[in-house]
Design a protein around this nucleic acid. Sequence first.
DNA 1: GTTCTATTCAACCAATTAGTTGAGGACGAT
DNA 2: ATCGTCCTCAACTAATTGGTTGAATAGAAC
Lengths: 122, 122
Amino acid sequence: MGDSTQQLDRAFAALADPTRRDIVSRLSVSDATVGELAEPYDVSFQAISKHVKVLEEAGLVTRSKDAQRRPVHLNREAFDPMTEWIERYRREAEERYRRLDALLARTAQDDGDRRPAEEQES
Amino acid sequence: MGDSTQQLDRAFAALADPTRRDIVSRLSVSDATVGELAEPYDVSFQAISKHVKVLEEAGLVTRSKDAQRRPVHLNREAFDPMTEWIERYRREAEERYRRLDALLARTAQDDGDRRPAEEQES
DNA sequence: GTTCTATTCAACCAATTAGTTGAGGACGAT
DNA sequence: ATCGTCCTCAACTAATTGGTTGAATAGAAC
């Protein structure tokens, strides 16, 4: 199991939680300490600390050190592998769909050419 | 908790598993039955059936009926909310970064204009 | 009808996860 | 030195998850 695979595992899993997605959306506006992040939620401070840890282990955020504060910062580039993965197969399926569509259009036209003759046979 | 929120929960969670991602990648090439999907993996057939169910509940695939077969089909559009979500905050963070960058550049230039004067003061 | 095939459902197990509380560590302020 | 602040770590619980096996369903083939 490749490292990038595991990284995708963690990144997708991290974003599967609404609280963590909300944290990400707030961090996109500005960096924040764990305390600031925890403030609006109705769960313990430690629970949010855990959520941040999950995001950090997924590589989506980084933490620096400022005295006893631990400001959290969004790691923008870490989101790219996810969109690249999704878009790759999205595109592949899209192309397959278009090919199938084109094939059906040609078949329909063939039917249009052929059907009158077939109907004369029966 | 909005419905779209829950849908994102399920979609991200569904892609957090490497086996399920592999299933998606194969479905991007062609539709397949559960049996065909299960064949290459070293787990029970039922385990793959469960994985497909998770993908289905996330809206990422649909199943039709063909006799006793249940062909699985990739639901291309269902991937869009994820990329939109990611790209939205990705972009937001990117813009913030550029603003900060521009601010720092201006500050550096101000320093460049001011420093000689300040140095004359000291 | 019986049988074979494709699939799901149900019950169970082990591991993981999201939450809790309590203790402890690092640092700034007094 | 002590105190308050910010934060992590450890231990526990309840719920969820990925896997198992065995039974049940639906349809094709014989």
